[in-house]
Design a protein around this nucleic acid. Structure first.
Lengths: 163, 163
DNA sequence: CGACAAAGTGTTATAGAATAACATAACTTC
DNA sequence: GAAGTTATGTTATTCTATAACACTTTGTCG
């Protein structure tokens, strides 16, 4: 049911990603008693249009292109805020951009590999990594509320393509 | 010679932090053949005024307050860019803010504990953590160019103060 | 049903963060 | 000291994000 993140940078049937994400989103909202309104669903679809994080203003333009009415920043930011709260999307701090969450139902840390060439953000989770994080925090007597791990570099796909 | 990061959130002789950081900065620049001009030194001092990350515009206001002439954004951004290049400061992506690096001479990853209450950013490094990061990247065939680990939460000092 | 509250969206304006482009000054290096 | 490089000043603009208020839709409860 969860979307395998490792395929993000490879050729794949992305429409399948979208439909799976959509299903999951509806399930999550139903469970949380949250309303996935048409506008929110539209923003969610746009975010999921690719595995490349999208800026709020890019999303705004896409929204404006789809509907005839003009769209102001708060419209998209409120939708994004809702989706973030529901854990349906993530914010990439290094890019000021947003990307769909590939496993919204499970507990998830905010861990990303971001390719500088193709722009794809690959979400990952790794138990030993999380253990190290928790150990380090404990060492400092620090309690974690939010965590952001972002690794910028070059994905396998792009490196092989450049040979 | 290196400033112990764990004390950042505690009472300490901060003037000592500043003078140590200043020494290190001069050494690093000398070694790199980079010019730590008066402006850059001034910005460096301001960043080091505390262990709380500072936004570029806050720094700009502080610069303006110190000198009579008005200061425009590029002035501070260029100084910050230089200091980042020399590895003398770090950028906290979650906050759009900058903080002094506590061990500029050694190889350093961009790892921070950030207290939401007192605003202090504690830089840390941990071998097992870095190993996990590298292992994970290797698993995905991903080569890392830049890394950002930011943990938001509550530091020991603040938690104890709230009891 | 109808009134009320709550949640969502529209709209305007503004704040905050960062950079582009060009001009001027200062510092090398020969 | 003339030429080239590096640093800074200056103006304008772009990109990112939120505040404040109006209006509409949805949900609830008597």
């Amino acid at each position: 049911m969860t979307i395998p993140t490792s395929i993000a940078s490879q050729q794949h049937d992305h429409s399948h990603c979208i439909s799976t994400a959509m299903e999951q989103a509806k399930a999550v909202c139903a469970q949380n008693g949250a309303r996935l309104t048409p506008l929110r669903e539209q923003v969610f679809r746009l975010v999921w249009n690719s595995h490349q994080p999208l800026g709020a203003y890019a999303l705004m333009d896409m929204l404006a292109a789809e509907s005839t009415r003009r769209v102001a920043p708060p419209t998209v930011y409120r939708a994004l805020e809702f989706l973030l709260e529901q854990g349906l999307i993530h914010r990439i701090n290094m890019l000021n951009a947003f990307v769909g969450c590939t496993h919204p139902s499970s507990e998830h840390a905010n861990n990303f590999l971001i390719c500088e060439h193709c722009g794809v953000a690959i979400e990952f989770s790794a138990d030993p990594l999380q253990t190290s994080i928790n150990d380090t925090a404990a060492e400092f007597g620090f309690s974690i509320n939010a965590q952001s791990i972002e690794l910028m570099g070059c994905c396998q796909h792009c490196r092989e393509a450049e040979l």
